[in-house]
């Protein structure tokens, strides 16, 4: 219970960063924090007490393994997260080239 709450607080820190920060770099980092919290929450749901990792080997009982399904979902999610981070970085660099700043309140005025 308290683990879920702490993980939710981590997610809220990411939302706080997106809503209040003006620096584009800080916004990208906040999106990353939200992604970490979401992945960690899914894996927290999968844990079973006194169990082992879901990889078969000699002398391991199948009935004492953690849930492998959220692990499979999160494994693909991590990769997509990196792809989107690279895309956000490229967009931020393009914006810097055009407006010479990372401040979103100054980027907002349209020109050109």
């Amino acid at each position: 219970m308290i683990v879920y709450l702490l993980c939710f607080i981590l997610f809220l820190v990411g939302i706080y960063g997106i809503l209040t920060k003006r620096d584009l770099i800080k916004i990208i980092l906040s999106i990353g924090i939200m992604g970490y919290a979401a992945n960690l929450m899914l894996i927290l749901f999968a844990y079973r007490n006194n169990s082992i990792y879901p990889i078969l080997s000699e002398g391991k009982a199948v009935s004492q393994m953690v849930d492998p399904l959220p692990q499979a979902l999160v494994l693909t999610s991590i990769v997509i997260e990196l792809g989107t981070t690279a895309m956000l970085v490229a967009l931020a660099l393009r914006l810097y080239e055009k407006y010479k700043t990372f401040d979103i309140t100054k980027i907002r005025r349209l020109k050109g």
Binding site: N39, L40, I43, S51, Y53, V66, Q71, V74, L75, V79
Partner: peptide, 14 residues
């Protein structure tokens, strides 16, 4: 935390 939660696959990739 992935390592503690018995997910070595994810720990490596993360």
């Amino acid at each position: 935390s992935f390592l503690f939660l018995q997910a070595p696959d994810l720990a490596v990739v993360q």
